[in-house]
Computed example of a mutant assay.
Amino acid sequence: MKLFHCGRCANLLYFENSCCTSCGASLGFAPDVMDLVAIDPKGNNTWEEVTAGDQYRLCGNYQNQGACNWLVPVSDSHAFCVACRLNRTIPDLSTFRNHDLWVRLEKEKRRLVYSLLRLKLPCEPRQEDQYGLNFDFLADQPAIFDERSKVKTGHANGVITMNIAEADPVERERMRSQMAEPYRTVLGHFRHESGHYYWDLLVRSGPWLGSVREMFGDDTRDYRQAMDQHYQYGPPGDWQSWYISAYASSHAWEDWAETWAHYLHMVDTLETAWQFGMRVNARQSPMMNSEPDPAFDPYQADDFDALIKHWLPLTLALNSLNRSMGHDDAYPFVLAAPVVEKLRLVHRIAHGG
């Protein structure tokens, strides 16, 4: 994630900020310039960026629900921003806690959309493009006790469904423990499910299919049978030698989605480190520079080896910092050589798809 600064006072900002904590300026993320900008009201839901003078409207979910901080150019007739237009279904906001859970989901979804825009990947709403993307944010019905009727997080035909319970940290931790997952986050879910979408969009019927099958295995294998086998018998004993996660070993589709998600983890975390001026010395320890290296933008890096060269020592530093604070590893993964090659292929497809 990039670093942002207030256009009025130069205060350092977070991606989620809607108000500068230093000078009080109103803020909004402008996806047309990929920047978090300070804005002044001009009346009739028109806002002017304080430095360049560009004019915007607040996204409908910014103005009415407090669930977004993105802007819509005044020349755009849509009521919602490019991220919120991807929503097909939102939860019943009259139900207790649903609004808070939805807002948490939207915050992580915008991070996903930011990455997709930085990679210049197609992410049009399905209502506007037959190959587009939609999100359904749904809640379990308390009156229904049938386990099979619960909302399942997943992807099908361009629609990513997310159970809003995933935004509840207590419920998510319960599921993480139950599923024996070392890593389970809302953002991880979004990135994983987007992998299934981009499999359909970039791989399934395209020129990459042969290369992906050679690397990830037979995607025509019966999916339900593979999943039943995975949950009954668990992953193979040597899964860490071949897969990014135990779940990735269940089927080629899940291997692809887990690897795709991991690639998005890499480039976004590396961008954060790069923006903070953290240079990683592969032989020693990370060192802070006064200025970021302008030659290294992880989202635009052609050389995958450069990403890995920066990534591995950075993860070592992250884990060491966490252990110093008495926490579990921030990065509970091992990148075996076959996994690195899978990530390399994902990199090629993400940039050439």
Rank of each mutant, 00 (worst) to 15 (best):
H5W: 09
C6R: 01
F15E: 07
S26T: 15
G28R: 04
D32T: 15
V33W: 02
L36M: 09
D40H: 10
G53Q: 07
L58I: 09
C59A: 02
C59F: 09
Y62P: 07
Q63M: 14
L71D: 01
P73Q: 01
S77H: 12
F80T: 13
C81F: 05
V82G: 11
S94K: 12
T95P: 10
E106L: 08
K107C: 11
K107H: 10
E108A: 13
R111W: 08
R111D: 06
L117Q: 12
L119Q: 09
P125M: 04
G132Q: 01
G132D: 00
L138E: 01
T153D: 01
N157Y: 15
T161I: 06
N163F: 04
I164F: 03
A165C: 10
D168Q: 00
V170S: 05
E171M: 12
E173N: 12
R174S: 08
M175Y: 14
M175K: 15
L187M: 03
H189S: 15
R191F: 10
E193G: 11
D200C: 04
V203L: 01
R204L: 14
G206D: 00
D219W: 08
H230D: 03
P235E: 08
G237S: 13
D238L: 01
S241M: 07
Y243P: 01
Y243T: 01
S245M: 05
A248N: 02
D255Q: 04
A257L: 03
E258N: 04
T259N: 06
W260E: 07
V280H: 15
A282D: 11
Q284D: 14
S290A: 15
P292V: 05
Q300S: 12
D302P: 10
W311R: 00
L312T: 12
T315Q: 07
M325W: 13
A330W: 05
L345F: 03
A350S: 14
G352L: 11
G353S: 00
